[in-house]
């Protein structure tokens, strides 16, 4: 029977269900969410979706958070039948983030993954058409990243102060210039 109000499942219960299906998928358990190993992420997601207890058939939302040292791809998955919601995180390397695409499991993820790729730069192998969603292809860099156009002193750049960029020197991928670090 569905709960009267949506219940936020505790990390422990979700982690225990995932370990039952895919032993080494859980990297860390927090009270509200579970952090998965990137390598076993896809199997864990498939297990979560088809598990009768968790019944994660409805992918509520998919986004990414730039934690300076790593980029977390956050999945909120819910079961409409049992009216409960839980959160999974898949960490990825900061310079070359790569997380397996979940489009084979949920069709709703296609556009959201393209948005994450467009704004955060996370690659999703297995995505049918991984191209930029909002910006045009030759847009340098990914705006939502913390290091995008960071100015000296780490102060976040307002969008109007753009440093000069010499065309052709850095090729397609525009690397923001960090004065003082020489590159």
């Amino acid at each position: 029977m569905p709960h009267a109000a949506t219940v936020m499942l505790a990390g422990a219960t979700v982690a225990e269900r995932i370990r039952a299906a895919v032993p080494d998928a859980v990297r860390e358990v927090a009270p509200q969410w579970v952090v998965l190993e990137p390598s076993a992420a896809f199997e864990a997601m498939a297990a979560v979706r088809d598990d009768e207890l968790l019944d994660g058939k409805y992918l509520v939302e998919l986004c990414s958070v730039d934690q300076i040292t790593r980029i977390d791809v956050v999945y909120h998955i819910a079961s409409l039948a049992q009216n409960h919601l839980f959160e999974l995180k898949v960490p990825a390397d900061h310079e070359h983030p790569e997380v397996p695409s979940v489009t084979p499991l949920w069709v709703g993820a296609t556009l959201q993954e393209r948005e994450v790729y467009d704004l955060m730069g996370v690659r999703f192998p297995g995505h049918p058409e991984l191209t930029r969603l909002f910006l045009w292809d030759s847009f340098p860099g990914h705006p939502l990243r913390k290091d995008f156009l960071a100015l000296p002193g780490g102060q976040k750049a307002g969008l109007s102060q753009f440093p000069k960029q010499i065309v052709g020197e850095t090729g397609g991928e525009f690397r923001p210039r960090r004065p003082g670090t020489g590159e």
Binding site: L135, P143, L144, L159
Partner: peptide, 12 residues
């Protein structure tokens, strides 16, 4: 094709 009205609110 979307993106004509993208104001990158999440960055702002």
């Amino acid at each position: 094709i979307v993106g004509y009205l993208h104001r990158s609110m999440e960055k702002l």
